[in-house]
Every structure is written in structure tokens, then in C-alpha cells.
Amino acid sequence: MVETPPIEIIEYFNAPIEKVWNVFVNENGWSPWFTDKMYMELRNEGKITFLWKQLTLGEIVEDEGYIEEIIDKRLIIFWWYKEERGYRSKVEMSFSKDENNGTWLKIIDYTQVYTLDELQIKYGCALGWGQMLNLAKLWIEKGITII
């Protein structure tokens, strides 16, 4: 395995923590604002499934994972990106409110890279998280989706 630092992204949402939490952590996942279909079993060891089509030029991309830990309105840790070696990526999403009734979301993605040729996978994940947060911000703060 190639040692690489985790992807760390922080975003501020001008919305209460309950609203932000419920957009990211719910049975329907990140649909309709990011995924075409997603399902989360909201419990430790609960299954997660993902399906994208609109953001992948019509190619159907499916994946799965599971929730490692969930603490209401504070933290969700999950594994995803299933392959023959198991799950490639562990993700921590932590939520905190501020004094202005807004919410900070910090995402740490520990995508595993096995060869230097696979660095593109990690770069793709970083790009995807940035895109996802922009779409989430539009959905949470303005109530619109652009996919």
C-alpha cells in the first residue's frame, strides 16, 4: 500500500445542525441532490448502497458499504468502495453547530491506494467530495438541485 494523507474537507452550512444532519444521514441517503438512488440502514453495521447515473455521463455506477459508527447529529463513520480486497475507503463525517445556528461539516476520507497508478482514484474522490458539498450547499441553503 502507498501511504497517502487522508482527504480532509470542511464546509459551513447556513442551516441548523438538525437540517444538515438529516440531509446527509437518512434512509434515502443523498438522493435527489447527489445520487440517483441511495439507501442507508441507520445503525452500526447498517448497509449503504449507492447508484449514480446523471453525474457519470449515463453510465450506471453502483457501490456499497456499511456504517461503522453513528452518533446522532454528531458523527457517521462508514466504509465504501467495495472491491475484491474488501472496502477501499473509510469516511468520517463530523457535524458541529456554531453560535449563529449554522453547521460545520468535516469529512475525512481515508481512501487506500495500493500503487502509484491508483493515485487517480484518490484524486477522483477528492473531486467528488468537493462536488458533493457544493450540491449539498445548494440543496440545504437554497432548496434547489442542479443535477
Score class of each variant (00 low, 15 high):
E83Y: 09
Y66K: 03
F13K: 06
N100C: 04
N28E: 07
Y87S: 01
D98A: 10
P5E: 13
W21M: 01
E27W: 01
E84C: 00
Y12F: 14
V61A: 03
D98N: 15
E84H: 09
V2C: 01
T103K: 02
T115Y: 02
S96G: 10
Y39I: 11
S89P: 02
A136K: 05
Y81W: 02
L57W: 05
L133H: 05
D109P: 05
K137L: 01
P32H: 02
G86R: 09
F13A: 07
A126F: 10
R85Y: 14
E92D: 06
E62I: 07
L133F: 11
E3L: 14
N14T: 04
P16S: 15
W79E: 04
D98K: 12
T4S: 05
M132Q: 09
I48S: 06
K122V: 15
K142M: 10
V23Q: 07
W30H: 14
E141N: 02
Y12M: 11
E3W: 09
I17N: 06
G46F: 00
L55H: 05
P16M: 00
K122Q: 15
K19H: 02
I121Y: 07
T35Q: 08
L119R: 11
F13D: 03
L127F: 11
T103H: 08
V23D: 08
G65S: 10
N22R: 04
E84G: 04
E84I: 06
L116T: 14
Y81K: 14
E118M: 01
N44D: 13
L119W: 05
E141F: 06
D36P: 04
I71D: 11
E64C: 14
I60N: 00
W139I: 00
N28D: 10
R74D: 09
N134C: 12
E62R: 12
F34W: 13
L119A: 03
D36R: 04
A15I: 01
D98F: 07
I67F: 06
K142A: 08
K73R: 10
T35K: 09
E68L: 15
K73S: 12
M38E: 14
E62P: 03
L75W: 05
W52Y: 13
W21V: 02
P32W: 08
Q120C: 04
T111N: 03
L119E: 09
F24R: 12
L133Y: 04
I147C: 13
Q54K: 14
K122T: 08
E18Y: 07
K53V: 09
L75H: 04
L105A: 08
T111D: 01
I140W: 10
P5Q: 14
Y87T: 00
W33L: 06
D109L: 10
S94E: 13
T49H: 01
L42F: 00
T4P: 04
Y39E: 03
E41K: 07
Y123I: 11
T103E: 02
K47I: 15
D36M: 03
S89H: 03
Y110H: 15
M40E: 00
S96H: 05
D72Y: 12
F34K: 06
P16F: 05
E118V: 14
T49Y: 03
D72H: 11
W21P: 01
W104D: 04
W80S: 11
W52F: 13
E18G: 02
L138E: 12
M93Q: 07
E45Q: 12
R85I: 03
E8H: 10
N22P: 00
Q131M: 11
R85K: 09
D63P: 10
E64M: 12
Y66T: 06
F78S: 02
I17G: 00
